[in-house]
């Protein structure tokens, strides 16, 4: 389950613009397991990231994060490494959908470039606020729409569907 959106707190790992899906989930490792693929997440831009990122940490980036392929392993490897949220100026459209589908918060923040590596961020997804208490910084983000928050809080699209299908007794497997 993803952490409660009202208390998303973690250390910032800062990247640039257009961090694409091939960088997040390199093709050469796509046939293997998620834990193995995760070891190579972002390695071409920061070879130390995968080994050093910790549970609850937050990835911060510029424009068009997750641009490229529809492969949602780009989200899964971040989740596998413990990343709780990605804060970026803008996102690739498919990545954004995939993120909430898998319970990863994708926060659109036009002021993301004020965040520095190692900052401890507190993210309020519903209100669209990020605070960096050590530097007395308060950043404004796009508030996450209620239906996406609900999806993330439920643990993603499939968990939500599971609840819906069982509510209407719709399981039809043999």
């Amino acid at each position: 389950m993803p952490p409660d959106n009202r208390s998303l707190t973690g250390k910032a790992w800062v990247f640039g613009d257009e961090v694409n899906t091939d960088v997040l989930a390199p093709g050469q490792y796509m046939s293997g397991s998620i834990p193995n693929l995760a070891k190579h997440c972002l390695e071409s831009v920061d070879p130390d990231f995968a080994a050093n990122v910790r549970t609850g940490d937050i990835v911060v980036a510029g424009e068009n994060f997750g641009v490229g392929s529809s492969r949602e392993q780009a989200v899964e490897v971040l989740r596998a490494l413990g990343v709780s949220a990605v804060v970026a100026k803008t996102f690739g459209g498919i990545f954004f959908r995939n993120a909430y589908n898998l319970g990863l918060y994708a926060i659109v923040c036009g002021e993301a470039d004020q965040i520095q590596p190692g900052d401890i961020l507190s993210v309020n997804a519903a209100a669209g606020k990020i605070t960096v208490s050590s530097r007395k910084l308060a950043l404004t983000c796009d508030p996450v729409p209620a239906f996406l928050l609900e999806m993330a809080e439920q643990g993603g699209l499939i968990a939500g569907l599971e609840a819906r299908l069982s509510a209407r007794g719709g399981k039809n497997s043999t």
Binding site: S69, S70, I94, N98, G156, L157, I158, L161
Partner: peptide
């Protein structure tokens, strides 16, 4: 389409867009 270059189908006057596997799982189910 379960692939990011699904917009290709737009050449035929379709609204065809790419989604990831979880989205596709939801579509396959419902």
């Amino acid at each position: 389409g379960g692939d990011s270059h699904s917009p290709t189908g737009g050449a035929f006057g379709c609204f065809m867009f790419g989604v990831g596997a979880t989205d596709m799982g939801g579509i396959m189910a419902t």
